[in-house]
Structure formats: C-alpha cells, structure tokens
C-alpha cells in the first residue's frame, strides 16, 4: 500500500474515530456555539452603539443594526480614522464597504480559531502515544503516514466546523438583521470561514507537532496554549522592536516564521497576496508538524 493511501486511511480513521467517540460532535458544537454567541452579542453591541450614535447625531433611531455602520463606512473621515487604526492601506482598501457584521465575524473567526484548534486537536497525538494505541497502528503503517494522516484528518474536521460556524453565524445575522440576509453576505461569510481555516493550519501544525513530544494529553494541551501565546507575544515584540537600521531591521524576516506575519495577507482580495499567504501558512503548518515528528521518529513508543 502506498504511503499516500496509508495517510488517507489514517485521515479517514481520524474522522471515524471522532464520530464514534462523539468528539466530532463536541468540536462542531464548540465552533457553532462560538460563532452563534459571537454573532448575537456583536449585533447587540453594534445596535446599541448605533442607537447611541444616532441619538448623539440627533437622528431617528434605527430598528436594525448595521444601517448606521454601513453609512459610516462610506464617510471619508471614518475611512481616514480606520486607515490610521489599521495602518495598512491595502487591507483597508479591500475591506472598505463590506458589511460590518461580516467583518466582525471575520475578526472573531481569526481570533478564536487558533485557540479552539489547540484545545480540540492539541492532545490527539499525545493521547494515542500515552494510551499505547499508536503501537497497533505503526505495525501496519509508517510513523510519518500516521502523523500526517492525523494532521490532515484534524485539518478537514476543523475546516468543516468553521464552514458550519460561518453558516450558523449567517443564519443568526439573517434573523437579527432583516436587511442583511443577502446571498452576498452568505458567500462572504463562508469565504471568511475558509480564510480562517487556512490561518488555523499553522496553529494546528504547531499544536500537533508539540503533541509528539509528550505522552500526557493535558501536558500537550498546555504546551499548545503556551506555544500560541508565545507566537502572539513574539509577533507583538517583533513589531515593537523593529527598526529601520541595525540588527533590528532583520527582525521582520524572523517574524516570517510566525503565522501572524502572514495573517493580513488573508484579509486581502487580490489573488497574489491570498495565494502567497495561504501557501506560506500551509507550509508553516507542515514545518511545525514535521519538527515535532523529528523527535517522535526514533522515540520508543
């Protein structure tokens, strides 16, 4: 049996095992709950903000959230304010005019997905090493196929969960905002789910790579959480300490090894940054996974 087929079988078994153990259901529920709650609270918050703004501007209060924000997006002073906030003209240009709800969903999806990925998949490999289940599998397949298969299985499970969370967020938006239930918004929200999924791949690789290093599932989860925290902190530090001259001018190149450096490429509309960013993030995911696998390769299980 070729390596690719073996890897595919492991990935399918990861799905089967997740369904059998109801783990898949938990993952889906977790993502759905996150998306639905986030959308519901965001619409409430937006509605309150818009009502306050309408009162301050002595305008009649709007019944639906999003009306004032959509108009606000079109105003030049607001665009200038956003430009100063984002400090990225290209991203701002691409997101200008999009529905605020869509952007709120995108922002939350990019924010919570790495954390959920680590919580859901961070212990998958450590669990099987710890229980000894891996011994039965590596009789029939290579260790590399097993690691890659589990990674791909988890990757697609998270993809499906994100896709469903995007759909459920759209349903909430459609119910709460009468004027927003357009097909455009649905497609856009699904698109943001796909982008968030690509962004989650390096974090999944990181969590599963670290999972190779321990037999304890809880230790693996903690290591994963610490690793993603370190990624965020390092990104902030690199941005803060980057200078135009001296050794600090090279810090952004070091930052390319972190997923956060490529995140804004996924917020762009043009194909070039989107494809380049996606390819780099997927590569980073595999690099993290294989670094962990390098320790597992010769380990006594």
């Amino acid at each position: 049996m070729s390596t690719l087929v073996q890897t595919w079988h492991i990935a399918c078994y990861e799905w089967f095992d997740a369904l059998r153990s109801r783990r898949a259901l938990v993952v889906l529920l977790l993502y759905l709950a996150a998306a639905v709650c986030n959308m519901h609270w965001s619409i409430n918050l937006l509605h309150r903000l818009e009502s306050e703004l309408a009162t301050a501007l002595q305008l009649p209060a709007t019944e639906q959230a999003g009306v004032v924000s959509t108009a606000l997006w079109k105003s030049k002073p607001f665009q200038r304010m956003m430009k100063r906030m984002t400090q990225n003209d290209l991203v701002l240009h691409d997101i200008t005019g999009k529905h605020p709800i869509e952007l709120i969903y995108a922002w939350f999806a990019f924010f919570y997905t790495p954390l959920l990925v680590v919580l859901v998949a961070g212990n998958r490999i450590a669990e099987e090493i710890g229980s000894g289940a891996v011994r039965y599998v590596i009789f029939r397949t290579s260790r590399a196929s097993w690691s890659i298969g589990k990674f791909i299985g988890q990757m697609f499970m998270i993809g499906l969960a994100l896709l469903l969370s995007g759909t459920s967020a759209y349903i909430v938006a459609k119910i709460r905002l009468a004027g927003s239930g357009t097909p455009d918004l649905f497609l856009n929200m699904v698109q943001w789910s796909l982008r968030a999924w690509i962004y989650s791949i390096p974090y999944l690789g990181l969590a599963m790579g670290l999972s190779h290093l321990t037999r304890s599932p809880s230790k693996a989860t903690v290591m994963g959480i610490l690793a993603i925290t370190a990624c965020f902190v390092l990104s902030i530090l690199i941005r803060h300490f980057t200078a135009d001259t001296g050794w600090r001018a090279y810090l952004p190149h070091l930052g390319q090894l972190l997923p956060d450096a490529h995140k804004m490429l996924l917020w762009r509309n043009a194909p070039a940054p989107l494809i380049a960013g996606s390819a780099t993030l997927v590569t980073l995911g595999f690099c993290y996974l294989f670094t962990g696998y390098a320790f597992f390769r010769t380990r006594d299980v």
Binding site: T3, S142, S145, A249, Q256, A279, L284, C287
Partner: peptide, 28 residues
Amino acid sequence: MKSFLLLPFAVLIGILIGGWAPREELRM
C-alpha cells in the same frame, strides 16, 4: 517519504530567501 518530509522546510527556506529582496525593497 523522507524527501517529502523535507519538502515543507525547503519550500519555507525558498519563501524566506526568495521574499527577502522584495521585502527589503518594499521596506525601503
């Protein structure tokens, strides 16, 4: 299989080195 495992690292090095010059130019 071994070469496949090294492939992502090779791609990553390619991305980093290949992007170095354009990134520097962009920075300037």
